[in-house]
């Protein structure tokens, strides 16, 4: 009576790539092959480092976003939040230079500030969503505007620049690395691996998926729905802080144009990676693949003059839609 197509794992089909699972990986490999074919420098150490390092900010944020979306939420504020955190961080570090002098002390304080502000911003989002019971879309749409205005106001409409001396000390956090691997890549990888483990192996990850698939069932199964929800937003806030820590040493500045549209890129990466937008199922490794796909598109279009740069956004759009179409489960047989 209730038997349907999903129960029959068809052995008769023989070997076939299951796009539902491997679609994003196939797309990534195809892009890499295309890039290597178009430009011999594509696979050079320098270019690979560039692409991975610039993916790191969105990537770190997108890992957090995977948890938020898996538990049925959404956060539109992360781009402005990153700009705001960068601004606060720069102002505090600049302010401390006269008393603390130029050195790692100031930078460590700055890093701590970034994480604390990220935590607080995530807490505000999370409390408004879980306690005041306002929809996540509305809350984060609101805080998105608030953070963006705050950074514009802090920077007086211009650009906040990090003290030159501090910058010179801080620079290596973006540009140097360990054994030839840049720090942003190392941090991104660490966050991604930890995220994957948390999602698959811990009660927290399982609870996120349960809440996203049916909040009522989770509630009746002794899951602390509000607490888990709140934690996803706080986790995301902290990760935005970490992403900002990696971002600031790159150009040493923050302005109202910092982090514009990062939220949409992060959400797009999560969806391309196979996480379900309405929640219930998430996978962090997919998100990582999604982030890489998005930055590779830009990189390849820059490296090879394939199409007019005006169409860059259109190509990203096509990829996002294709990714979701490929992953959609087969419809019920008629």
């Amino acid at each position: 009576m209730t038997v349907d197509s999903a129960t029959s794992t068809a052995p008769r089909q023989g070997f076939r790539i299951d796009f539902h699972i491997w679609g994003p990986v196939v797309a990534l490999l195809a892009l890499i092959a295309l890039g290597a074919f178009l430009n011999s420098n594509f696979l050079s150490y320098g270019n690979v480092t560039n692409v991975l390092a610039r993916s790191a900010f969105i990537g770190i944020i997108a890992v957090g976003m995977t948890f938020v979306i898996t538990s049925g939420g959404l956060d539109l504020s992360v781009g402005s939040m990153a700009a705001f955190i960068a601004g606060v961080m720069i102002m505090i570090m600049n302010g401390l230079v006269p008393s603390m002098g130029v050195g790692w002390g100031v930078i460590l304080v700055g890093m701590l500030v970034a994480i604390v502000v990220g935590f607080a911003a995530g807490l505000v989002n999370g409390l408004l969503i879980t306690q005041a019971r306002i929809e996540a879309f509305i809350v984060t749409l609101g805080t998105m505007g608030i953070f963006r205005s705050l950074i514009t106001w802090l920077a007086n409409g211009g650009t906040l620049s990090l003290d030159y001396g501090v910058r010179e000390v801080y620079r290596p956090v973006y540009y140097d690395g360990l054994l030839g691997v840049a720090w942003p890549i190392i941090v991104f990888a660490a966050v991604a691996i930890l995220g994957e483990i948390i999602m698959r192996k811990t009660p927290f990850g399982r609870h996120c998926a349960a809440i996203g698939s049916n909040e009522q069932v989770a509630l009746y199964s002794a899951v602390h729905v509000n607490r888990v929800r709140l934690m996803t937003y706080i986790l995301l806030g902290i990760l935005v802080g970490i992403a900002t820590i990696m971002y600031v040493p790159r150009l040493g500045s923050a302005s109202s144009s910092t982090g514009v549209l990062w939220e949409l890129e992060a959400i797009a990466a999560v969806i391309i990676g196979g996480t379900v937008l309405k929640g219930g199922f998430g996978r962090v490794w997919g998100t990582v693949v999604g982030v890489l796909i998005l930055s590779l598109i830009g990189n390849i279009l820059n490296l090879a003059n394939l199409v007019s740069p005006y169409l860059n956004g259109a190509i990203q759009g096509v990829i996002i839609i294709l990714a979701v179409v490929l992953q959609r489960q087969k419809k019920m047989e008629r």
């Binding site: 430009n39 420098n41 594509f42 050079s44 320098g46 270019n47 560039n50 610039r54 830009g298 990189n299 820059n302 490296l303």
Partner: peptide, 9 residues
């Protein structure tokens, strides 16, 4: 990012 890619290319 654009300049990074120009330099690679």
């Amino acid at each position: 990012e654009v300049m990074q890619d120009f330099l690679s290319k």
